[in-house]
Design a protein around this nucleic acid. Structure first.
Length: 407
DNA sequence: TCTGGGGTCCTACATCGT
DNA sequence: TCTGACGATGTAGGACCC
């Protein structure tokens, strides 16, 4: 008796933010473009008084000074070695001629909703994985072909999805299809951009085992470095490593997980609904601040963050029972402190006061680079209101009981 | 020339009540 | 009364992801 075959797709938009920017500024097509940094590099509109045509003057990376990082790089910029999460000053060294655009999350969110809606018209079982990625359960959609994993039938549906995404957004995406999320995710990355890769379990030795372990979603820089130390350079080598050896290094749970994923096994389902767990706001200062010497400036930023967070809670309809503080010091170490409240809140002043109390429990003798405020243990406002009404009722009843001297 | 902002999940450990 | 086991809950940190 074996598991029924599932058909899972992972869809990843190609260089999403940069591609959305190129829709707005088609004249940048074919040129290296980097999205990131602050608001400072908004393209300037230049209206030709004779022709009435508007063109744009763009900032380049040359001479960039500041703490920004690249959010996305177009494929042309990647040719120069620029990639997302790279410091912009480093990117400027590699590709000074690259165009730098500020990020516009409202525009990305709009395109995100469009491509997801387009996919849902073909396959409704979609799991959100952030702004530019989804998993899709195609098992039902290709039900009659699933048992045999009919590649041609699957390919037709994948192409229909790509066409629908293209029609809705004018953007391209890459799709990986496999019997589980793990392999689908790896597959979608194999032939970017505009890729379509279909993998079966039997393809694991040939297609997956030669890859580096960091290609596995969940093996990041730390685990990767430890595996390298152990002489494990490929997923195949990981699969061949005895469980006990991995257990000594990573603990039993992680070892078991690594062993499973290295063999291409993954039982996770598609989660079509999820509730937000926490909401936070944080900011990196232009220059590091000192808790005592820069008290006034720090306090102002702190209050503003709490107000923004309260605004987020209000807009999204949540109250929080846990309020947390995050400090990143000049040496990049992080301290977090959190407090759980009796009464959930979405009030900026309450958040500010509680987060301020958290700050008093954190080291404040070092220079601070980043300040963040977090709201956790969220509850929907309606639910909290109902609970508090229930609470009131219970308290009133208790009072009556006391007066009547009931048990 | 250091490295953003928003999240999730996991683990270790402390504390408390039973 | 003391001691330990155990679950629930809260806190802090770390790793990872987009």
């Amino acid at each position: 008796m074996h598991e029924p075959v599932r058909i899972i797709a992972h869809l990843d938009m190609d260089a999403f933010f940069a591609s959305v920017e190129l829709l707005r500024y088609p004249e940048l097509r074919g040129r290296p473009v980097v999205v990131g940094g602050g608001r400072r590099h908004q393209p300037e509109d230049i209206l030709d008084p004779v022709t009435g045509i508007t063109t744009h003057r763009f900032a380049t990376l040359a001479g960039y000074v500041g703490r920004g990082v690249a959010t996305t790089a177009s494929y042309e910029a990647r040719e120069f070695g620029v990639h997302s999460a790279m410091g912009l000053m480093k990117a400027a060294k590699l590709a000074p001629q690259a165009i730098l655009l500020p990020s516009d999350f409202d525009a990305y969110r709009e395109q995100s909703q469009r491509f997801k809606a387009a996919v849902r018209t073909i396959a409704p079982a979609v799991e959100d994985r952030g702004i530019d990625e989804i998993y899709i359960d195609l098992t039902e959609v290709v039900a009659e072909h699933a048992a045999t994993f009919d590649r041609e039938a699957i390919r037709r549906i994948a192409n229909a999805i790509k066409a629908a995404v293209g029609a809705a957004t004018n953007l391209s995406c890459s799709i990986g299809i496999a019997p589980n999320k793990l392999l689908a995710k790896i597959a979608s990355d194999l032939e970017k951009p505009d890729g379509l890769v279909i993998l079966e379990a039997s393809d694991v030795p040939a297609r997956i085992w030669p890859l580096a372990p960091k290609k596995i979603n969940g093996i990041g820089p730390k685990a990767s470095a430890r595996l390298t130390e152990m002489g494990i350079a490929t997923i195949g080598a990981l699969a061949a490593t005895p469980l006990a050896t991995l257990g000594d290094r990573f603990g039993p749970n992680t070892a078991r997980w690594m062993h499973e994923v290295a063999h291409g096994r993954d039982q996770r389902g598609i989660a079509t609904h999820s509730e937000t767990k926490s909401i936070s706001r944080e900011t990196t200062f232009e220059h590091d601040l000192h808790a005592i010497r820069d008290r006034a400036a720090l306090s102002e930023i702190f209050t503003a963050l709490c107000e923004k967070l309260a605004g987020d809670l209000l807009r999204k309809g949540y109250v929080a029972r846990n309020i947390g503080l995050k400090l990143r010091y000049d040496d990049f170490t992080i301290a977090t402190r959190a407090t759980t409240l009796v009464t959930p809140t979405q009030d900026a002043q309450v958040i500010r006061r509680v987060a301020g109390e958290c700050a008093r429990r954190a080291p404040l003798d070092r220079r601070i680079r980043l300040l963040g405020v977090r709201a956790g243990t969220l509850m929907r406002v309606e639910h909290a209101a109902a609970l508090s009404a229930e609470d009131d009722q219970r308290r009133t009843r208790d009072l009556f009981d006391e007066e009547l001297d009931l048990p």
